[in-house]
Each structure stands twice: as structure tokens, then as C-alpha cells.
Design a protein around this nucleic acid. Structure first.
Lengths: 278, 278
DNA sequence: CGAGGAATTGAAAGACTTCAATGACGGTGG
DNA sequence: CCACCGTCATTGAAGTCTTTCAATTCCTCG
């Protein structure tokens, strides 16, 4: 963690695909950042409110969730170091979810005004930030599949796979081991299951020797089996085009074709075959 | 449907929040559009491929889906007239889902190159298109909640509510009635349930006299009861800031505060109370 | 050491899936 | 014009997955 130069993480993220010009890099470096330490379970952005800043995760985890009927909630995503949270608030003023810290976290806030003026000046930067939000949308879309079409065991395995790859893409969890400060209640709310069932699912993953899971520290025991078990395919994370140069310069550790599943090419899945007369 | 001037729908969409300058409006009008009629069940964009154009829905419905284990699939979104499909392909070249027509549809294609050059020239336009993708992401996020935390009955009701509001926002389904060319298999794949159960859920909605549902024509019988039943709250569609002027000029018919649920303000939902010492 | 949240367990109830069969409908070819 | 076919819709019954309820144990922190 290079919290002393927080923009370096941001620059790395933005240059996943396109190199930025020196001018644009300087624009990012000159962004006013307000650093802050947050304890566990703090709301960063609250449902129904508006905000005038975006959040960069420097260390720790955030998660977003939405309330549902009957005092239940659904966790809709996790944020790992390097993620920019709440870019949507730049152009959709009313927040339709809540973002909170999972464990304690180190954050950097960027005022909307500063960010907007930079984005107005540079279409390349606007494009890079736009792409970040597109990648987030792709993750949401995969979560839809996860909750809709996988059983509880595969769901949790899939979330673990995603977290692992995302952490590795920013140089963390290189040994397939990381501490994740969620409770089993959080796991349940992310998987859309009950906390009791979450407990049983975790035990099953332990029993199958796919992961070690002791007091909120996770260690992947058998990555390829976990990937198979989850039906995980990292295409949706869109890390494929990260150049080796960028990766090297940031000491990045993207697993090489970490997870590829052969997806059956049946066009209409369960329900039939696409007519080809289009 | 004003298919003779397809860009008018697009302009209306982009000006939901910000008026565009005359120059920007002209840029949109000058975009090269290729019109096409498509029969039912045609793939527009296919998983794993790349594409060099975006799609504007002029008439009919599209849907996107992703394959899952065991020849199953999950529908991840529906697209209604006026929607711009696959804006993500502008900046994420490899498509991670499949888009197909539901019934027959009238589409307009815009080449990436033309769109990109317009977006480079005008940051206001880039912002508007960016916002479109943010709104799509918000819909994905709500689908995560839908699949994670609602039972099959509420899930389907919620999807029906969403479709109704989205159609009404472009001047369709004013009488709370619209034809939707999905099969019960499609319904099942959208709700993440089996086709057999989808059938029973539909029957229940009919029995509760919430909707009429005859041969793929839907009529909402009791909107407020349906909204309550679904736990539907249209905040996530982010239509709140559409100005009345825009609405009037496009003969739009957004239901006034069509669906507001009181969301309990419990911060952590099922699992406890947020500490306030942040 | 006590308190309280978190994890774990068992048992019963509920939601949903699967299998298998039947009915309804529209389009096609003889 | 009608028989045939395939797709879609519908139904029943059995089985599986998940939830709920209610304890009990574990762990951490003050």
C-alpha cells in the first residue's frame, strides 16, 4: 500500500487500457484528495441522500447494499483497494444505495467539482473514468447471474473467486490468501441466503478443502477446483487487455488466464435454439 | 413511434436532465443511423465477440442474457424502445453477454467511430451517454436485490413494475397495458426460477387480480397493489429529475410519484445497527 | 469474569425444482 | 381442409434446497 501517494493507485487503474498523456497524468496527480481513516461499519454514502464527492479506497473494504422488504438487505457489491466508489453520483445526484466500510478502511475523497472540471478538460480522462463505471456495471450483471442461476454453494464460491481476482489485480492476495472482515451475516446478505445457511455453505467449502476460512481470514486451498465449483469465468471483469507493461510498472500480479471456463455456445440456453435467419 | 426521425427518441433520452446545446443536438441528428427490421429471437451481439456499433431500439424489445452452468441462462435486462444498447462496447471491446430480440424489432445501428468522434468533441454529450450507462448499472443493481431478496412472486411483480414505468417514460403503456413477446421460459430466465414455477407465479398474479396476462399481452389491473406486492420503488430508475418541460415536449407520461415505498431507515438491516461514531 | 455479538447445530416448515404427462395453439404440408 | 408437428402452457406429485425457529457454544472485548 502506497498511501503516501494515493493517486498512484488511481493512475494505475485508469491506465488499464489506455496510456494517459503526461498532461492527463498530472491532472490526476493534482486532484485534491482528502484522506480519512474510517472504523468498521461506517456509512460513507447513505440511501436517498446526495453527495458532493467520490471515494477512492486506499486500504480495507467497502460494500454497498440496498434495503429490501422486512428489515432484510442485499449486498450488491464489494469494493477493494484501488476501487473508485460512487462515480455514479457525479451524474446521478440521488444515491439509490448505501455504501459502508466492512472493516476499518483508509479512504480518499475527491470533490465532485474538481473531478468534473478535470473530466470536462480531458475526454481521455472522462473515457477512463467512464470505463471504470462500465466495469462496475459488468460486475453487477454477473451478480445477477450469480444470484439467479447458481445455488448457494456456487454463489459463495463465485464471490470468493471474484474477490481473489480483483485483489490480485491490484497486487494483493498474491498467495491466494487475504483477510476479509465480513461476518457470516454479511456473507448471507451478499449471497441472498439466510445467515444459518451461509454458515453451512462455508462449512461445506471448508470440508471440500476448497478454502480455509478461519476468523475472517480466507485462504484458497484449491483455486482451480474452486473456479470449477463456482462456474467462475473472469471475462466479465474485463482485465484481459491490461498490458504487461502496465502490469509490470505497477508490480501487478494478474493471474495469467486465471479462470477460463468453456461456455457452451448454445444460443438460447435452456429454452431452445436461435433461429439463424437474422 | 416516430421511426421516420429515429434520433428524436435518442435526443429525448439524452436530455432527461441536461438540455443539450443546439450544436450538440445537431451532432446527434447528424449521426449516421442504419435502420433494420429484425424478426424474433435474433442475436444482435454475441457473447465473446466484439462489435463496432451500438444499437438503438426504435420499436420492440431486446433482452440480454448470460449463460450459466448446465445449459441454463439468466436474462440480465430487458430493453424497451428508446434504449441504447451496448454502449459498454464502446470502451470494453469484448462483449460478456448476448443481446437478442424478444419479438420482432426495429433497430438503428450507430457505428462506434461516429459516436466516439462526437463524444470526443462534446463533453456534454459524453456526459449524457455516460449517464445512460449509469442508469443501466442502477437497474442491474436493483436486479441483484430482486433476485437476492425477493421471492418468486415479488420478483416477477417487480420486473413487471419496472417494465411498465420504463415504457411509460417513453410514452408507451399509458393505459397500463402492453404486449410483451416473452414466453414463460423467458420469464423464468429473468426471475431466476424454473419455467414450471414461472407458470404458477403468473397464475397467482392473475388470481390476485394484479395483472391480466393473456397470450403475451399484459394489463395491470391494480397498479398500487402490484407495487406494494413487489416492494417496487422507482428511485433506482433515476427519472425523478426529468423536467416537466421535457416531458411535455415529448408527450411523455411519467406517472407522478408512481411508486414510492417507505423504506425502513434501519441502517444495517437484518444484522444490526450502524455505529454512529464515524 | 461477564456481556454480547458471532458462529454453530438440530429439527421442522416452506419455497422451489424436477420429472412426467397432458392440453392448447399455430403453422405446414399433403 | 385436415392431420401432423413442434412449441408453449398447464398440472400433479415427489424430491431438493433453503428458511425459520430455537438453542447452544465460541470468541472477543471491556
Amino acid at each position: 500500500m502506497d498511501i503516501g501517494r494515493p493517486y498512484s493507485r488511481l493512475l494505475f487503474r485508469l491506465e488499464r487500457r489506455n496510456r494517459l498523456s503526461a498532461v492527463d497524468r498530472q491532472r490526476i496527480i493534482d486532484l485534491p484528495l482528502q484522506l480519512a481513516n474510517y472504523p468498521a461499519e461506517c456509512e460513507i454514502v447513505s440511501y436517498g441522500y446526495s453527495t458532493s464527492r467520490c471515494t477512492l479506497v486506499l486500504d480495507g473494504f467497502l460494500y454497498s447494499h440496498k434495503p429490501a422488504a422486512g428489515s432484510r438487505r442485499q449486498i450488491t457489491s464489494f469494493f477493494v483497494p484501488g476501487d473508485v466508489v460512487d462515480l455514479p453520483t457525479l451524474y446521478l445526484p440521488k444515491v439509490d444505495h448505501t455504501v459502508a466500510t466492512l472493516g476499518s478502511a483508509v479512504l480518499a475523497f475527491v470533490p465532485h467539482a474538481a473531478l468534473k472540471s478535470v473530466l470536462d478538460e480531458s475526454s481521455a480522462l472522462a473515457q477512463s473514468f467512464w470505463r471504470e463505471t462500465l466495469m462496475q456495471a459488468a460486475i453487477f450483471q454477473e451478480w445477477v447471474v450469480n444470484l439467479g442461476r447458481r445455488d448457494a454453494f456456487a454463489r459463495l464460491a463465485h464471490i470468493v473467486c471474484e474477490l481473489t481476482v480483483r485483489l490480485q489485480s491490484v497486487g494483493l492476495a498474491r498467495d491466494f490468501s487475504f483477510s476479509m472482515p465480513w461476518t457470516q451475516m454479511d456473507v448471507a446478505d451478499a449471497c441472498g441466503i439466510s445467515n444459518v445457511h451461509a454458515n453451512r455453505v462455508i462449512q461445506e467449502l471448508r470440508h471440500l478443502e476448497l478454502v480455509e476460512w478461519n476468523s475472517r481470514r480466507l485462504k484458497i486451498r484449491n483455486w482451480s477446483a474452486l473456479v470449477r465449483f463456482a462456474g467462475f469465468n473472469d471475462d466479465y471483469l474485463h482485465y484481459d487487455a491490461i498490458t504487461r507493461n502496465d502490469a509490470a510498472s505497477a508490480e501487478q500480479d494478474v493471474p495469467e488466464s486465471s479462470a477460463r471456463m468453456s461456455i457452451p455456445s448454445t444460443a438460447r440456453g435452456a429454452s431452445g435454439v436461435i433461429k439463424t435467419d437474422c
